[in-house]
């Protein structure tokens, strides 16, 4: 089963005429790790937003986990996102005034997963990410950036999502922490076996992934613009 399938999808930003994204076909299979490459401003975040259901396509089909997101109500999309999709951002992944435990609990509270094994699950995740369990009671904004990004992975995976979206999660990290971050991310993904789409402009990270998507090659809107210039 393909986790993501796109057919003749168009997305136009509000208050603009020309489509920002226009993709004729794209498919991501179960368990794949995809490196979504593109320069900044090329529409990577927009595409991830469409996958996550915070944006909806205007025409064509976009199916995530076999579900046509545009056909869901806004409320169903929010709950779909909470239950099936984990997201890691470049920065500001955690609510700064909550503890690490509080952040994980909050993410858990939006999904319909059971609360019982929650504590155990967060501890397993933190350990897998080489994080001290003492951090659970620390406020998120007292953590180093590297720690925050690793907690963000735990937060993204706490509801056992089928799809993990990462949007430039390493760009705030220095070279050393970036490599250890990538290794941890890939190993924990191997364990949880979710499908991952990792957006970045950094080609050096490509070696970690099965598949590479160069966004500008798929996006007809972008191509047209390039040829006009």
């Amino acid at each position: 089963m393909s986790i993501i399938s796109i057919e003749n999808m168009r997305y136009t930003w509000p208050k603009t005429d020309s489509p920002g994204l226009d993709i004729s076909g794209l498919s991501v299979g179960q368990g794949e790790t995809v490196f979504l490459r593109g320069a900044s401003g090329s529409g990577k975040s927009t595409l991830l937003g469409l996958f996550a259901g915070t944006l909806t396509v205007q025409s064509g089909t976009l199916k995530v986990l076999g579900t046509e997101l545009a056909s869901l109500s806004p409320r169903e999309r929010d709950s779909f996102r909470a239950n099936h999709i984990g997201i890691v951002f470049q920065q500001f992944n955690l609510i700064p005034f909550l503890t690490v435990a509080g952040n994980l609990r909050l993410a858990g509270s939006f999904s319909r997963g059971s609360r019982q094994d929650f504590r155990e699950k967060s501890e397993v995740l933190l350990q897998a990410l080489n994080l001290d369990l003492g951090l659970l009671q620390r406020r998120a904004d007292t953590l180093s950036v590297g720690q925050q990004q690793r907690v963000a992975i735990a937060r993204a995976l706490i509801n056992d999502p089928e799809l993990l979206l990462a949007d430039e999660p390493t760009s705030a990290l220095d070279a050393d922490t970036r490599d250890s971050f990538m290794r941890l991310l890939m190993s924990i993904r191997d364990v949880s076996d979710c499908t991952m789409i990792f957006a970045s402009h950094d080609r050096s990270l490509m070696k970690y992934f099965d598949t590479e998507i160069e966004l500008s090659e798929f996006n007809r809107a972008q191509k047209g613009k390039a040829s006009r210039v």
């Binding site: 996550a52 915070t54 806004p74 409320r75 929010d78 709950s79 996102r81 909470a82 239950n83 997201i87 951002f89 500001f92 992944n93 955690l94 609510i95 700064p96 909050l106 993410a107 939006f110 999904s111 937060r155």
Partner: peptide, 16 residues
């Protein structure tokens, strides 16, 4: 604004 956007990203409804 970032905090509120984050709630939405992790699955909160606007009502939240």
């Amino acid at each position: 604004s970032r905090e509120l956007a984050l709630y939405r990203a992790i699955g909160a409804r606007p009502l939240f």
